[in-house]
């Protein structure tokens, strides 16, 4: 597997509707060989639909899909040679773990099918790869969620897929197993070097595992970039709000002045178009100073401690209430009046 050139995936202008619901609204995406890409978005953003169309489990209303440069829409799911891992694993419940993994090998046309020993060796290899060879005689109902997920992955890899698609691979697992499997998936991807796309609604998962993140909302791609890109320089208001924890304030821009309510803010507004806009600041980018010193002013309402930071609820003088994360050293108490200065901020029109 390792010697083969990893395969590219390209979709062009995909549109898919379910009744009156637009699941995909003109999606273009190029995935290079060997990448591990995350499709990130809230539920209903179209990410699973996109994945299923690439796998051949759904068909678009219009648009094109190319896998390794070949027109994939001319092929059925069977011919595409795509490894698909389902959110709820979809293991064959009446087969043992061994038979589940062997399935893809057993249904191959007689001419290319391995003999029984060949199949046994290959299944053993795959179960070793996912570190679960000791489970080969169990039935899926006897496995834990994490084990089922790894068996589902081994089963998908059995056919030596050209690409690997994972639908919410860790969605149904508890937090601890999820974190372990994330690391494991990344090293596995490194080892087998197959172009992979996985769908997730968990931003932490996307940022940690993928080398490129595709943020989707309402059937459209909002931003494509490295985990750093989408976190540090969000391209749209949606991305800023969806990734990382942000403070969002409705502001008005008039002739180079940013106003929150009727109060002008001491923030640079160079090059911004006038009109209603939204101001975004990361919670930890809001620096606390003495009253009267910052762009904003407010009274501390509550303070709670979260590991290395303290989270304070601050009622701004304009009436809005925001939550900020401040270092623990900075002592905040309910009732304090403080000044707030955003270290970094972004303003999006609309």
């Amino acid at each position: 597997m390792k010697d083969k050139m990893p395969v590219t995936i390209e979709v062009r202008n995909l549109v898919k509707t379910f009744g009156s619901f637009k699941a995909l609204d003109g999606v273009d995406l190029k995935v290079d060989g060997g990448e591990l890409v995350a499709l990130l978005g809230p539920s209903g953003s179209g990410k699973t639909t996109l994945l299923r169309i690439v796998a051949g489990l759904d068909w678009p209303d219009s648009g094109e899909v190319f896998i390794s440069g070949e027109d994939a829409l001319a092929q059925g799911a069977r011919e595409r040679h795509v490894g698909f891992v389902f959110q709820h694993y979809a293991l064959f419940r009446h087969m043992t773990v061994f038979e589940n993994v062997a399935f893809g090998l057993r249904v191959q046309p007689r001419a290319v099918r391995k003999d029984e020993t060949g199949i046994r060796t290959r299944v053993k290899e795959l179960l070793d790869l996912v570190q679960l060879d000791w489970l080969s005689d169990r039935y899926p109902s006897q496995l834990s969620g994490g084990q089922r997920q790894r068996i589902a992955l081994a089963r998908a890899l059995a056919i030596e897929p050209r690409i690997l698609l994972l639908d919410e691979p860790f969605g149904a697992l508890d937090a601890k197993v999820r974190k372990e499997l994330r690391k494991w998936l990344r090293s596995l991807h490194h080892e087998i070097n197959v172009t992979s796309i996985f769908v997730t609604h968990d931003q932490e998962e996307a940022l940690e595992v993928a080398n490129r993140v595709v943020v989707m909302d309402k059937g459209r791609i909002e931003q494509i970039g490295s985990p750093d890109d989408v976190y540090e320089s969000p391209a749209t208001a949606f991305v800023h709000g969806f990734i990382g924890e942000s403070i969002e304030l409705p502001v008005q821009i008039e002739s180079g002045v940013i106003r929150l309510g009727d109060r002008p803010l001491r923030l640079a507004a160079d090059g911004l178009t006038s009109g209603a806009s939204r101001l975004f600041v990361r919670r930890h980018d809001m620096l606390v100073g003495p009253a009267g010193s910052g762009a904003f002013e407010g009274a501390v309402q509550h303070v709670r401690n979260f590991g290395p930071v303290q989270r304070a609820e601050v009622a701004l003088s304009g009436g809005e209430t925001i939550e900020i994360d401040a270092p623990r050293e900075k002592e905040l108490r309910a009732g304090d009046t403080i000044g707030l200065n955003p270290r970094r901020y972004r303003i999006f029109a609309g």
Partner: peptide, 19 residues
């Protein structure tokens, strides 16, 4: 889902039904 899994693993319609 199990049928979809079978098809994506290369099974034909009949194989999927009977297996």
């Amino acid at each position: 889902q199990e049928e979809e899994a079978a098809i994506s693993l290369g099974a034909s319609g009949l194989q999927t039904f009977f297996r």
